[in-house]
Each structure stands twice: as structure tokens, then as C-alpha cells.
């Protein structure tokens, strides 16, 4: 998506930190409309956005694998449980706070803690033997190999 503002107002901090250009609301509105356009054209999934189950997942595929990705900051790899059952992958675990000190005062607490479990069913034939998971900088990537039948192959014309 091309990110541009509707009206090119110069960025200024003169007035105050909360100063917004007069068409700020319209920019927000435009963003919402873009989001709708994406939904309608299928670039975003309808149900997916509102699946309501933690963690949010992004799934991509290339010719050999499916890739399931989730942002799980603060999770240790050993605390995540990944199960493959038929075509369903379940990712579960618990996010904990490391802070148990009673002597501290909280100013903000926005980071969530708690249990989660999410199942996702993959379409197409998958190769259950060929599943890998890795955790890099708080992003979990599970790659699931496609079975030989499901792989697309190029057919040459004689």
C-alpha cells in the first residue's frame, strides 16, 4: 500500500506537541477506507483480522513450505508448545512477568501476561515429518513442508 497523506501539510512542531494539521481526521478516515479496500479485494482476510485468539498469525507459502509466524515478545523458546495433529497446528504457552518484587511501583502496565493456545488448520497436503520452528527476536516462525503431491510443478509442453 502506498502510504501518503491526503494533504501535504508541512510537519511543524511550532504550536504544541499535540498540534495536528486540519485534515488529520481525514487522513485517519482515508486509512480506514484503505483497510476496507484491502478487505474487499482479499488482500486481508476478514475472519483472520478478528479471529480474537492470541497470538495473531501471519501465514505465507512458497513452493515448498508454509510459514506460520507470530509475534511473541518475551517468550522463551522452551516455553512454547507446538503440536501438529493431522493438518492442525496448535501453538500454546504462557507469557509470564519476570517481576515478582513487591517493592516496586508500576507506572504503566501495557504488556499482557497469561496463557494462550491457538490452533490453525492448513489447507492442502502437508508433510508432517518436515516441520521446523525457530524463534528470532521474539518472532516465532514455524515452517511446514508441503507434501510432494501438493507442490506445484511446472509442466513443459512438448
Amino acid at each position: 500500500m502506498i502510504g501518503r497523506t491526503m494533504f501535504n501539510f508541512p510537519a511543524t512542531r511550532l504550536a504544541s506537541a499535540n498540534w495536528r494539521h486540519p485534515f488529520y481526521e481525514m487522513d485517519i478516515f482515508k486509512k480506514e477506507m484503505d483497510r476496507w479496500a484491502d478487505l474487499m479485494s482479499g488482500r486481508r482476510s476478514f475472519g483472520g483480522r478478528n479471529s480474537g485468539v492470541f497470538p495473531a498469525l501471519n501465514i505465507t507459502e512458497d513452493k515448498d513450505n508454509y510459514y506460520i509466524r507470530a509475534e511473541l515478545p518475551g517468550m522463551k523458546p522452551e516455553d512454547i508448545d507446538i503440536q501438529l495433529n493431522g493438518r492442525t497446528i496448535t501453538i500454546s504457552g504462557e507469557l509470564k512477568t519476570e517481576q515478582n518484587d513487591n517493592n516496586i511501583k508500576y507506572h504503566r502496565k501495557e504488556r499482557d501476561t497469561g496463557k494462550f493456545s491457538r490452533g490453525v488448520m492448513l489447507t492442502g497436503d502437508i508433510d508432517g515429518e518436515n516441520v521446523n520452528a525457530k524463534m528470532v527476536n521474539g518472532v516465532l516462525t514455524v515452517s511446514v513442508g508441503k507434501s510432494e503431491i501438493a507442490k506445484s510443478r511446472k509442466i513443459t509442453i512438448n
Binding site: 502506498i2 502510504g3 509475534e71 511473541l72 515478545p73 518475551g74 512477568t97 517481576q99 518484587d101 517493592n103 516496586i104 511501583k105 508500576y106 507506572h107 504503566r108 502496565k109 501495557e110 504488556r111 499482557d112 527476536n137 521474539g138 518472532v139
Partner: peptide, 26 residues
């Protein structure tokens, strides 16, 4: 260009220091 997000943070303090935790996956 590109999206910019606000990371979720925890801020707490004890007698000697203020500690800030920010989720920045990826």
C-alpha cells in the same frame, strides 16, 4: 514510508531506578 507502531511498555520503579520494558518483536 512504512507503518510505525507504538510498542507496548511496562514502566516500574524501585528506590534506585526506573525500569522500562518495551515489546519490540522482529
Amino acid at each position: 514510508p512504512g507503518l510505525i507502531f507504538t510498542p507496548a511498555v511496562d514502566i516500574y520503579e524501585n528506590d534506585n531506578e526506573i525500569i522500562l520494558l518495551a515489546d519490540m518483536p522482529g
